[in-house]
Write a protein that binds this DNA or RNA. Structure first.
Lengths: 152, 152
DNA sequence: TTATTTTAAGACAAAAGAGTCTTATTAACT
DNA sequence: AGTTAATAAGACTCTTTTGTCTTAAAATAA
């Protein structure tokens, strides 16, 4: 898999948050219900994003999590980096450690090019952009549910 | 990871075979030694490639495995498909089953485009092409060894 | 025929990823 | 103060991937 399950869940939750603006904290329980993700698992993932400063959390009644910045300032690459690390940006296609210009593997040149196009895609796509598109066209965010399910 | 370890090992071994032409069978033990891959693990992987018709094997003394076709007729996509399956060509970036034009996720369009560039890269790169380049420039195929290590 | 060299097959073990559960801790409301 | 609603933290389990080991089968050569 390109992205780990944790990363995918983190992205889905981030899109949820971006679809709602970030004035209010949104409870993780609500998100896990709507997104059909295990509550405890999602909690752990969002704790990572909180630790990385992408989310901020608030305990107690009316608590939850929200984005620390407006979603149009958050490329999805930020979420990917926070959860899966930089492997996507640096990993050798043949799994060789430190594969680079100096000590390349035979696939290095072609793969570096392809990898850059992945990188650019993730860097040039913001949460808000996807959330907007998702809302307008009621696109999918769960196995059988669209963005409309995220709203009351 | 983009490719599984099994797939990476399968690719490295295939490049080994392609560097040697396919007149002779090459023992798996020799490949596993040179490529620094566990013999039994590599054996299992190459059995998959044999089952898929990419390799043919021969038991007993002077036995081993070899490519069934000239390496310039084998795009590395064949190896990837045989070991990791078609997930690379079809998987949704947000992990939604059956994500496609009909029921897309918000990332679908952009991801499909990026995914195609990965696909094309793997389809347009042959074993021989990489093996030739690897031999000529003595590129890396193990943690610290180049193509020269593959030869006696 | 017997010993040797090789792949084939499958049981087993270790490590990593994914998911669950329990117990704090914090904040709001009554 | 006490109850309730929420996140934080960490132990624990399940599953998949990765890797090891043993035995069988096939081919060669003495």
């Amino acid at each position: 898999m390109l992205l780990s399950k944790s990363c995918i869940y983190g992205l889905r939750a981030s899109l949820y948050l971006a679809s709602h603006g970030n004035e209010n904290y949104i409870p993780i329980r609500k998100m896990s219900d709507r997104l059909e993700i295990s509550f405890h698992f999602l909690t752990k993932i969002l704790q990572q994003l909180t630790a990385e400063g992408i989310l901020e959390s608030f305990k107690g009644p009316n608590g939850g999590v929200r984005l620390t910045k407006p979603g149009d300032q958050i490329p999805i690459m930020e979420i990917v980096l926070a959860i899966d690390g930089h492997y996507l940006l640096t990993e050798c296609a043949l799994g060789l450690p430190g594969c680079g210009i100096k000590k390349p593997c035979p696939l290095h040149d072609k793969w570096a090019e392809t990898r850059d196009s992945i990188k650019e895609m993730f860097e040039n796509t913001t949460l808000t952009e996807l959330a907007k598109k998702g809302k307008e066209e009621n696109l999918r965010l769960t196995e059988d549910g669209g963005f409309d399910l995220l709203f009351d």
